[in-house]
């Protein structure tokens, strides 16, 4: 009887069967990957030297108190027991509580050892949920900037392979990719914010504060889009159907927009999936420089403070996001080009 729902799905649903099977397979694989990532990062954090309890309780706390807190929090149990407890929580959607951040926000605990009861510590999930939208806003704006710059350059380069637009695309992407984000961030902050007073740079107090960080991030993304577009547009323009389209009476612009760009969409989508971790690295550093209150700054602070549950939570959430983005990317790619089979 177990196959009845599946049969129903097949008959009445708009979603084709292979999509369901694809989703189930990929989600299972994704769950395995997220599990591996959590196991790896969990073990790593416990193997490396440095006692987080010392940091939590403060340098002046007596040794006995440190041991007591550590025992209470289960930090002296064998690693596999700690991990079992942790992953059990994660499966129920509980990422644990931050070691150092109090629930009321603002201040960062750790200075005094006699207050800060465990119950008052911030939930990792809340911390991530608060900062993620800020990072998303930054990443999306950066993507828009990058596309505005990269599409004309990339398409022009792809239309005239070996000619000057192509060379320009090569030079520009080589220069863009050679600008380290933290240095560019400092230089742009100096020029646009300190000298010319055009844009605000540090902190967050309205949408304007997103522009400068997004600009820096877009310089990091643009070269990959330019390169992908140049290659794929050049490939598409060399194919038969482009010549046929011309015979069919389509204008050059119609050919470029209907065929060439549409066919470049798939490599671009794949790029988004593959380059997700690079994007993340950029976000991390850029948020740190501009003191932008997103996931990246949260991560750096978590590492600096040895906030193990927070580091683990961020690693798990980003791994899950990576898995989901890649599934969505592959689904979109099949929607655009039904010949693809995953």
């Amino acid at each position: 009887m177990a196959f009845v729902p599946v049969a129903l799905l097949q008959t009445y649903s708009e979603v084709p069967m292979f999509v369901v099977r694809f989703l189930v397979r990929r989600l299972l694989q994704g769950a395995l990957i997220v599990f591996l990532v959590s196991a790896l990062i969990f073990t790593l954090l416990r193997v490396v030297p440095g006692d987080p309890v010392r940091l939590m309780a403060g340098g002046m706390a007596p040794e006995a108190l440190i041991e007591k807190i550590a025992l209470e929090m289960g930090l002296r149990d064998p690693i596999y027991q700690q991990f079992g407890r942790y992953i059990g929580g994660v499966a129920q959607g509980d990422l644990g509580q931050s070691f150092v951040r109090p629930a009321n926000g603002a201040a960062v605990g750790g200075a005094s050892f006699d207050d800060n009861t465990r119950a008052a510590r911030a939930e990792v999930w809340d911390l991530i949920a608060q900062t993620a939208p800020m990072t998303l806003q930054l990443a999306l704006l950066a993507m828009v900037f990058a596309l505005i710059v990269a599409i004309p350059i990339g398409v022009a380069g792809g239309l005239r392979p070996g000619k000057w637009p192509d060379r320009l695309a090569l030079y520009l992407s080589s220069v863009f990719i050679s600008l380290p984000n933290f240095w560019l961030g400092i230089v742009l902050a100096l020029l646009l914010s300190v000298k010319l007073n055009l844009l605000p740079a540090i902190g967050y107090n309205g949408f304007a504060y997103t522009i400068l960080p997004a600009l820096v991030l877009s310089v990091e993304i643009a070269p990959f889009i330019i390169r992908t577009l140049t290659v794929s547009v050049a490939n598409v323009m060399g194919q038969n159907f482009i010549d046929i389209a011309a015979v069919r009476g389509l204008t050059r612009n119609q050919i470029i927009f209907r065929h060439a760009l549409k066919n470049s969409a798939i490599p671009l989508l794949n790029l988004l999936g593959v380059q997700f971790s690079m994007l993340l690295g950029g976000v991390l550093v850029i948020e740190f420089i501009f003191d932008y209150p997103g996931l990246g700054r949260l991560t750096i602070n978590a590492v600096m403070q040895r906030d193990f549950p927070l580091i683990q939570g961020i690693a798990i959430v980003t791994a899950a996001a990576f898995v989901l983005i890649n599934i969505v990317v592959d689904l979109c790619a099949t929607a655009i080009d039904p010949r693809l089979d995953y």
């Binding site: 990957i33 990062i41 490396v48 971790s277 993340l280 040895r306 580091i311 690693a315 980003t318």
Partner: peptide
């Protein structure tokens, strides 16, 4: 290899170097 690709390596790198 797939698992490695989906690990946010930058987080791993700064974690390892940050705590050692």
């Amino acid at each position: 290899t797939d698992a490695q690709l989906s690990i946010p390596m930058i987080i791993l790198a700064i974690t390892i170097l940050g705590v050692s």
